[in-house]
């Protein structure tokens, strides 16, 4: 890739999610004309989403189409609205405007097919539940109101714990688990949800190497089954290794698309400024990997 290409791309601004809609950037078409042709297979398509807390917008006119069956990382600096983005997609945070569709359906109808892994710190880990109880929570939607958790659900939950290598610790109280094990429990709960699209808020934050590998294995399994996972991710060095697609956010979409195309030095620079020299190494590694095939 020549420097010119890079410069052009760096000026080319945001790119839409898939390769098909590469043309004019900025605001190529009026908001009115938007009806992305492939939205029915796109697990998530976000259209002109604006989210504003008290005085200031946090996300502004975000457009994004997630490719099907892909592992997608959301990266961006602190305060770029990454967590807000996934929360607003799931109606956990009110949107000032914009539409969000899952396989062409609104959230209410698609909820059954979407799973969520919140940040690990968001819950009280001294809560009196065992690892198995937490995983069973993933099946509450399926079980329905009032009905208790049955044997079949428990068995399914144990299966999910096995997949993350935690079956032996199923009956431990959750405060007795290490940070990585807690994250694996959360992952098992997500598996128990048996969803087609997962939102995960920093699943790799503060976990040990073994857990990180376990998570990656599970993510790849999910992808192989044709499911999509959208992760808020902090560790830029591993983006290229773990993910297929990347969405770079900085209040609006800086760039989005396949990692090899989008995760460039210039884009990183745009998203993070000159703050991280590590990024340079990472992006060069990506570039090298991209040249090999």
């Amino acid at each position: 890739m020549s420097a010119d290409d890079a410069a052009r791309r760096s000026l080319a601004g945001p790119q839409s999610g898939s390769a098909s809609s590469h043309a004019p950037i900025g605001r190529p078409r009026s908001v009115l004309d938007a009806r992305p042709e492939h939205s029915a297979d796109s697990p998530l398509s976000v259209h002109a989403m604006t989210v504003a807390y008290h005085r200031k917008p946090v996300l502004w006119d975000v457009d994004y189409d997630a490719p099907p069956a892909a592992l997608i990382a959301i990266v961006g600096p602190n305060g770029a609205g990454k967590s807000t983005f996934i929360k607003a997609c799931m109606d956990l945070v009110p949107r000032a405007s914009g539409r969000v569709e899952f396989w062409g359906l609104p959230w209410r109808k698609a909820r059954q097919r979407v799973g969520y892994v919140p940040q690990r710190e968001s819950v009280d880990w001294d809560f009196p539940v065992s690892a198995l109880d937490v995983v069973c929570m993933g099946r509450y939607r399926r079980i329905g109101w009032f009905r208790p958790v049955g044997k079949a659900d428990r068995a399914a939950a144990i299966g999910c714990l096995e997949r993350v290598g935690m079956a032996e610790l199923a009956h431990r109280q959750i405060s007795q688990l290490s940070g990585g094990q807690q994250q694996r429990v959360f992952l098992a709960r997500a598996l128990a949800q048996d969803s087609d699209l997962y939102f995960m808020d920093e699943p790799f934050a503060g976990v040990d190497a073994a857990t990180e590998r376990a998570i990656v294995t599970v993510l790849r399994e999910l992808k192989a089954q044709g499911r999509s996972v959208i992760c808020v991710h902090h560790d830029l060095q591993t983006v290229a290794e773990y993910f297929d697609d990347v969405l770079m956010l900085n209040m609006r979409v800086v760039a989005a698309g396949p990692v090899a195309q989008v995760f460039t030095r210039e884009n990183l620079h745009k998203t993070y400024g000159g703050r991280l020299t590590l990024l340079v190494e990472a992006s060069e590694a990506v570039a090298r990997a991209g040249q090999q095939p």
Partner: peptide, 22 residues
């Protein structure tokens, strides 16, 4: 007794509960 499981998830992880339709 009837809402045991709903009470548990709503207390433990309100965000997940809400996305699950509880």
């Amino acid at each position: 007794a009837a809402l045991f499981k709903e009470l548990r998830i709503a207390a433990f992880d309100p965000g997940l509960a809400t996305t699950q339709g509880i």
